[in-house]
Design a protein around this nucleic acid. Sequence first.
DNA 1: CGTTAAAACAAACACTTGTTCAGTTAGGAG
DNA 2: CTCCTAACTGAACAAGTGTTTGTTTTAACG
Lengths: 190, 190
Amino acid sequence: MSIVRRENNRSEVILDAAALLFANRGFHKATIRDITGAVDMLPGSVYYHFESKAGILLAVYREGVRRVVESVEDHIAGVVDPWDRLTAAAVGHMEAILSPTAYARVIVMVRPGDVPELAAELTAVRDEYESLWRGLVADASPAIDHSLFRLFLLGAANSSQLWFRDDGRSPREIATALIDALRHPVGGAR
Amino acid sequence: MSIVRRENNRSEVILDAAALLFANRGFHKATIRDITGAVDMLPGSVYYHFESKAGILLAVYREGVRRVVESVEDHIAGVVDPWDRLTAAAVGHMEAILSPTAYARVIVMVRPGDVPELAAELTAVRDEYESLWRGLVADASPAIDHSLFRLFLLGAANSSQLWFRDDGRSPREIATALIDALRHPVGGAR
DNA sequence: CGTTAAAACAAACACTTGTTCAGTTAGGAG
DNA sequence: CTCCTAACTGAACAAGTGTTTGTTTTAACG
């Protein structure tokens, strides 16, 4: 009657492989065979652990968001000045979505619309994260519209995944430069 | 011996349909049958006009870039002040990539990495366009690194495709707000 | 008209996709 | 040891993919 749970649970291993492949190739180009091949399994075996391929993505996506949230909260902890908080949050965000761990990268790589059956749920998960930013932006109280400011900020940050290279600027430097660009005047007189 | 060229060339019709589908669903989720179905053809018929599915994408992509370039150049024509030029260019860019015509939207929707066989070529085409921005940014001469400034700017602009809605702010308003945010001080003292 | 080539059809091909499922293996419980 | 079941295999399936090929239709030209 007791539940038998072996410690050798490979569910997480599958998720790790899936996260890496989803992040690198996108959801559709990463096949079940790619994932199982990376962990020395057969295609059918994943269906003991997960309901479907979409189910794997959802799990990866949730974990990805969890890690970004964790990273951001770690960075802003104890920081009180609104703009310093914004910078800290940007650093946390950037480090997460550029991390080779790949979980957080999936959030940027696969767009909700890529998987129609999950679109609503993925958007909800993402929105929950963005609401964290709503507070951060509101506290810094920039001159322009808060909503646009947040969208521009996250848009610019996430796009870094397209051009970021390990031998270039660090995520921290990029994040700091981004907030600086939005905070301080850079243009000439009008 | 004379070349027979019918005026009823459906190549463009195919491209229009492909552009729309690529923009809405992405390259891999838009099938040849989707494209031909939209123009009342059979799957095999496109291979008279195009070498492959990737060939269609390349044609759409090139046309998309051509249209963005055209839009940007139209908007900056005659504008001399560097920051005004930047704003005008942003408006041109935004209107193009948010246009329902779909050609330019493909540039943002499908990333070079989505089609490995074409990655180099797509990147080259895109780079050619971005070099236009190199000049614009350099002329405005913002305080921060030109390269980062351009990447942030285009990243934020392109991400608007994810949240833009027809019943909200116009592309022009969004573009203007973006440049304004990067130009004027919005933050508190430090 | 008949000839010629453009343009599209019709039907398949070879392959990959996610998924299913009866059977096998292996480790903990009694 | 025996039983149980978590974990996985092996092999297939049905649907969908891009593409090819031989044939037919369509329109321009002499």
